[in-house]
Amino acid sequence: MPALSEVIAALDALWPPERAEEWDAVGTVCGDPGAPVRRVLFAVDPVQEVADEAVRLGADLLVTHHPLYLRGTTTVAATTFKGRVVHTLIRNSVALHVAHTNADRADPGVSDALAGALDLRITGPLVPDPSDPEGRRGLGRICELDEPETLADLAGRAAARLPATAQGIRVAGEPGRVIRTVAVCGGSGDSLFADVRRAGADAYLTADLRHHPASEAREHALHSGRGPALLDAAHWATEWPWTEQAAAQLDEISDRHGWDLRTHVSRTVTDPWTAHAASADPSTDIPGAPN
């Protein structure tokens, strides 16, 4: 049975904390380095519902993708919702460890898991890590489809393969457009439009696309005759496949070391949006507007 410090060392080898962005907050949030670890729960968000799930499961370690405290704080009082998470974990001897942008850049990382969920064939990183001589690490992935398919079919594939959310998949582009290459980036990806265009991808699947960057990308495609169609999924949905990949990686390490760890993946939906009301056909005029 490994100590927490041994498991954390293995996780840091998978996702070195020094590869995280400077603004990020990764690593161990709470936990006794000498405490034994038998069960590990993987999740995207360290919210109260997930902390309670870890307690019910009897987990000794909770590994999340998103940080609990991304910015500094002066209190962990249980009167705040994040403080309640800390109190719940410590009171029940559950350690918390975070792998965020260091897991985004890893090989395999968050975007590898996203591509794998859609059965896309990865050809390389979208934004290569200059410190990686093999050119395999970095942000996002460039992928190919085994057979060309329409944008509508690709959107349907994403909707069917990713966890269900209220948002579903938003699409910008002609439904019948033929797609051969796809750029993917788990989590917020509208800062990478220039890289997607440079890669020449036919479509870009990511999350949290804001109006102005998406509008500019669409106009660029319309007026230049090239540029990606856009598929915008829920942030949580694009990152959840990583939890299964990460659990499998720790399983392999456990088998190699004879640790006999039990890993679990949270199925709790922590996407903040809970419902979706469909509007009228967006191709029609605004109801009631003058002609």
Rank of each mutant, 00 (worst) to 15 (best):
G140L: 04
L118R: 01
L118C: 09
D107P: 00
T123W: 05
D104E: 14
E174Y: 00
R177P: 00
A155S: 08
D129F: 01
R141P: 01
V110K: 04
T165P: 06
S191P: 00
T206Q: 08
E149D: 02
R137S: 11
A106W: 08
G176L: 05
T150Y: 09
A183D: 05
R161V: 03
G135D: 08
P175V: 05
A155K: 01
L139Y: 14
P108S: 13
A201L: 05
D104M: 12
S188P: 09
G140E: 10
H97Q: 10
R157P: 00
T150C: 12
L126M: 01
A152V: 01
L114F: 11
C185I: 11
G124Q: 04
R121L: 11
N92K: 04
I122S: 12
A194K: 14
R105K: 15
A166W: 10
D153N: 02
E144S: 09
R177L: 11
V171W: 02
L126S: 00
A117T: 07
A113C: 13
P133H: 09
R180G: 15
S131V: 12
T101P: 08
G124D: 09
T150Q: 05
T181P: 02
P133R: 08
A159H: 04
V178F: 01
C185L: 15
L205S: 08
D129K: 05
V178H: 04
A106R: 05
L118E: 00
A160L: 05
P108F: 10
N102R: 12
V94F: 10
L126F: 02
N92A: 06
V94L: 13
R170A: 14
V127F: 00
L96S: 05
G186Y: 04
D195E: 14
D119P: 03
A172K: 04
P133S: 12
A106Y: 09
G124S: 07
L192S: 13
G168C: 06
A99C: 09
A158P: 01
L96C: 13
H97N: 05
G176Q: 13
S93D: 15
S111A: 14
V178M: 14
A160M: 02
G168K: 07
A164C: 03
A115G: 10
V178G: 02
L162K: 01
I122T: 12
V184F: 10
A115T: 06
L205D: 04
T206D: 12
A172M: 14
G187M: 03
A183G: 07
A103T: 10
D153C: 08
V98E: 09
A158T: 06
D107R: 08
T165R: 04
E134S: 09
E147G: 07
G189E: 08
E149M: 15
S131C: 04
A194R: 15
T181Q: 11
